[in-house]
Amino acid sequence: MSSFAASSGDTRPSLLRAAMDTATSLWSDTADPAELARSIEFGAVGATCNPVIALAAIRADLPRWSARIRELASEFPTAGESELGWKVVEELSIAAAALLEPTFIETKGMNGRLSIQTDPRLHRDVEALVEQAVHFSTLAPNIIVKIPATKNGIEAIEEATYRGVSINATVSFTVAQAVAVAEAIERGLDRRSAEGLDTDNFGSVCTIMGGRLDDWLKASAAKSGILIDPGYFEWAGVAALKKAHHLFTERGYRTRILSAAFRNHLQWSELLGGDLVVSPPFAWQLRINENDISSEPRIDVPVDPHIIETLTLKVPEFSKAYDEAGLPIDDFENFGATRTTLRQFLDADAQLDALVRDIILPPM
């Protein structure tokens, strides 16, 4: 089946066709206001952010944010670099959330959400994750909070859900992590129901970072000297995403799967048609539209069984990601893609600290 649109006379951009004609929701993997406004024109009804994305957005408009950081330093004279940097992330998120609020109202909270990620430096502290998640949820009515899908993060996800926070589980690559996230959210919602608390205004999602899973499998295979058809790796994240989505649908979880970390257009075109979220970076949105990638529903088209069999037999790390019981919760944080991504997010935090330091205490 071709991944490119047939000549049908439909002149709508590929993203807009899919957003209007399928059950799949387009979110944008950016918090930059200008990019998000364009994405909304393409049909985007939500947005996600993480430390790497936030740092890029700040650097993209550095004169503005440098001036604002100096103002914040004057307003909060005892605040350190980290605190000032996170105040900027909060302001960036609030501005992006405002662009999505009309959709949030229209869809009664299902979409129109802006994700803000908890500080990755808190990943070892359950209570700190919960407290920051609760704080972030007060920044705007349509905030959804990212918590990593580690063992500590799963505990924090349940508690934050119980406290009324809509969740976007992140640093998540495997079917096992996705199921653990969904079950934690169910427990949190059930605890609320037992106490007569509202459970209707949640819009929780569980991200699977398909492209980052592909990256890890390629690196792991190369380190082990494993050779298979290199194109097979491009289907690994898609396979995990499809499987997780079908499990969520079968079990009636009150959480949607979200596809993120794009490495190829399959992570868009192969997932269309299901009640899930696909969140391409803005640059990928432009490429999808420019190449008129098909918006035909393909969520129920299985990945070639030969590809699944080959990955399972040849690449042990794939089974950890694809099998529901492939990764015990105690090993979530030690999975290669998890460790790599946590380190990248921690590095982005350190870079933000350094950027703020150079603004408020410039070198001689």
Rank of each mutant, 00 (worst) to 15 (best):
G211H: 00
R121V: 09
V205L: 02
F76N: 14
V165N: 03
N289D: 05
A19L: 06
I154E: 02
E83C: 05
I360E: 01
A261G: 05
E101C: 06
R339Y: 11
G231V: 10
A261E: 04
D10A: 08
A67N: 13
R12A: 11
L352S: 07
A60V: 05
I144V: 10
R256L: 11
W86L: 12
Q285N: 09
K314M: 13
A260S: 00
I359T: 06
L139C: 07
A176D: 02
R192C: 06
E309N: 13
A178R: 09
E309F: 12
L114Y: 12
A19G: 06
R124K: 15
L84R: 01
A19T: 08
D353T: 08
R339S: 12
V88A: 09
A337E: 03
A350S: 15
S7R: 15
E309M: 12
A337G: 02
A337V: 01
D347Q: 11
S8W: 13
T310D: 10
I299W: 00
H246G: 10
A236Q: 01
L313P: 12
P33S: 03
I288R: 02
S3A: 15
Q132I: 04
Q132C: 06
A23F: 14
K146Q: 03
T255F: 07
A31F: 13
T48H: 02
A194T: 12
T24F: 01
R12P: 08
T22Y: 09
F202Q: 05
S269T: 03
V356Q: 05
F202C: 07
A321T: 05
G188S: 05
R187C: 04
A34F: 11
E41F: 12
N334I: 13
A321M: 04
Y253Q: 09
Y253C: 09
N152M: 08
Q344C: 10
D21L: 13
D32V: 07
S224P: 13
D119T: 13
L16K: 11
E90N: 07
A23Y: 14
H306M: 15
M20R: 15
K242G: 09
P77Q: 09
D200L: 14
H265T: 13
E270S: 07
A56E: 14
L197I: 09
L258K: 03
G274R: 01
P305W: 04
R343W: 12
M1S: 15
D275K: 11
P281M: 03
T310P: 03
I359R: 01
D29L: 03
D21P: 08
L361I: 14
A44N: 01
S74W: 13
L247W: 05
F42K: 08
T338I: 12
A67T: 11
L213E: 00
A31Q: 14
G80I: 10
M110K: 15
W86K: 10
D358K: 12
A337H: 00
L258Q: 04
R251S: 01
T338C: 11
R59I: 09
R59Y: 10
D349R: 10
F173M: 10
M110H: 14
P280S: 04
M20V: 15
I157Q: 10
Y253P: 07
I116D: 06
F233I: 05
